[in-house]
Design a binder for these strands. Structure first.
Lengths: 140, 140
DNA sequence: ATGCTTGCAAATGTTTTGCACGAGC
DNA sequence: GCTCGTGCAAAACATTTGCAAGCAT
């Protein structure tokens, strides 16, 4: 289903260094919208060399710029990242802070509802609420 | 249309100090979704005494907690504030960063489109795009 | 050699916190 | 007098940047 990280990076014109590939692979493999810090923690030991914080930030910015990933803003103070770049939406569980993807098929198309002075490039819906029956209970 | 800031604060159980009233008044009077820093700059000279950064942050947090204002997340690194607490949406001009309110009447109700495991408390749509004719300057 | 990329550390920017003072109950 | 809000400065975070060194072309 996923193209390889290397292909993806080449496609988007980003030189596929080991650091970038590991970070991209991680983001492609998870749906939990990690912060930069979480990315660092998750991939640091997957590299033979050390991975610095600066490289994580540089890489994430490069990937955003290249359109490989997207930023997600759901909470103050920090940015989360999402390798799902297709138009879709988010549900934030206000108890856990966890973010769930909502496919755009679930949401009617609403980009054309604004006045004509607004030329919409993209839009995203953020739902805040709580999960009703959470079968997979996170440890707390 | 607006209740007075003092009434509003009392209603919400926030002790209406001069600092809090000035900040609340400012937020009620503007539609430009200011950051904490912008709030400070805007109201600092409206008080006979000095207004500290810490008080601005403390106040904004207290107001959010009390439900007087809401946080708006549209960009990395900083929080913006909105005294319009009714459900509504935002359009971000990608050129200027300016944020426009979109009344919820313009958007179909979409809170019920998710699976039933999602209990939605609120949702907000954020549009990214650009203004077509900037001759229609918003009054501010 | 050239040009990116990395890593470290320092710098920046935003927000929070510790603490003393002052106003109001 | 106690409590709470304020102001200042320092601290805590999140992120960016300067720079030297490394890798690939």
């Amino acid at each position: 289903m996923h193209v390889s990280a290397e292909e993806l990076l080449n496609e988007k014109g980003v030189k596929p260094t080991p650091q970038r590939m590991v970070i991209t692979e991680y983001l492609l493999s998870t749906d939990c919208h990690p912060t930069a810090e979480e990315v660092l923690a998750a991939v640091a030991d997957k590299l033979p060399v050390s991975l610095s914080r600066a490289t994580v930030y540089n890489t994430l910015n490069a990937l955003v710029e290249a359109g490989v990933i997207r930023e997600v803003f759901t909470e103050p103070g920090r940015t989360r990242y999402d390798a799902n770049t297709s138009e879709h939406h988010h549900f934030v569980d206000v108890n856990t802070g966890r973010i769930f993807d909502i496919p755009k098929e679930n949401i009617p198309h609403i980009a054309d509802q604004l006045g004509e002075q607004f030329k919409v490039h993209s839009y995203t819906v953020t739902f805040f609420g709580e999960m009703k029956s959470e079968k997979k209970r996170a440890k707390e």
